[in-house]
């Protein structure tokens, strides 16, 4: 070994600036292997993202014609509960009566519904605290202190626009992307 190292600088011919051809080769080889390892990691991480069949079910149609005023239904959207609620005039008035700036997550009922369809409140049925299903969409369920939804897990109260009013949840119930394809049919997602 010792003999080899003595002869090497002379053989590579660049002893003056202290950089040998071998140093370049070492750095190049290790860098290239590093890039290779990084590229291999990518599919290993990416395989954990939602697969094509999960994403394929990412859009649904809901017919709302059968939902009477004051009623709500629970359906499934992306394997999670979706609440579709037909608000009464009193409920709309109650939601409008609250000054928006006083809310934890300031949004008006307008922001959360479609123009001309403000009686249709469509939200995810997933509490923004830790993901439980709030009560209030089913017949006879507790609707909480503000007449909207109530999460039994950690006591979050939502109002008639499904906005967080009391309890640990940080945000209003999420409004998914949706549009009315006809007067009574909603496409969600």
């Amino acid at each position: 070994m010792a003999t080899l190292e003595h002869t090497e600088p002379a053989a590579t011919g660049t002893p003056e600036d202290g950089v040998r051809r071998r140093d370049f080769i070492n750095i190049a080889a290790v860098s290239f292997a590093g890039v290779g390892a990084g590229v291999i990691v990518l599919p290993l991480v990416n395989q954990m993202n939602p697969s094509a069949d999960v994403l394929a079910e990412a859009s649904i149609e809901v017919d709302v014609s059968a939902i009477a005023e004051g009623q709500a239904i629970k359906t499934m959207f992306r394997k999670q509960p979706l609440f579709v609620r037909h608000l009464t005039a009193t409920e709309i008035a109650a939601a409008d009566a609250v000054p928006v700036t006083s809310l934890r997550d300031p949004q008006s009922l307008e922001d959360r519904t479609k123009e001309g369809k403000r009686q249709w409140l469509i939200t995810m049925g997933v509490c923004t605290h830790l993901g439980c299903v709030p009560l209030g969409a089913g017949e006879g369920e507790v609707r909480g202190e503000f007449g909207g939804y109530f999460c039994p897990c950690h006591g979050s109260h939502y109002d008639t626009a499904a906005r967080i009013r009391k309890g640990p949840a940080p945000r209003n119930l999420e409004v998914p992307e949706y549009s009315f394809t006809s007067d009574t049919v909603v496409q969600v997602g």
């Binding site: 991480v45 954990m48 993202n49 939602p50 697969s51 999960v54 992306r78 394997k79 999670q80 997933v126 993901g131």
Partner: peptide, 9 residues
């Protein structure tokens, strides 16, 4: 969250 679960729930 979505990555950990491989879905939305």
């Amino acid at each position: 969250h979505t990555w950990l679960l491989g879905g939305f729930a």
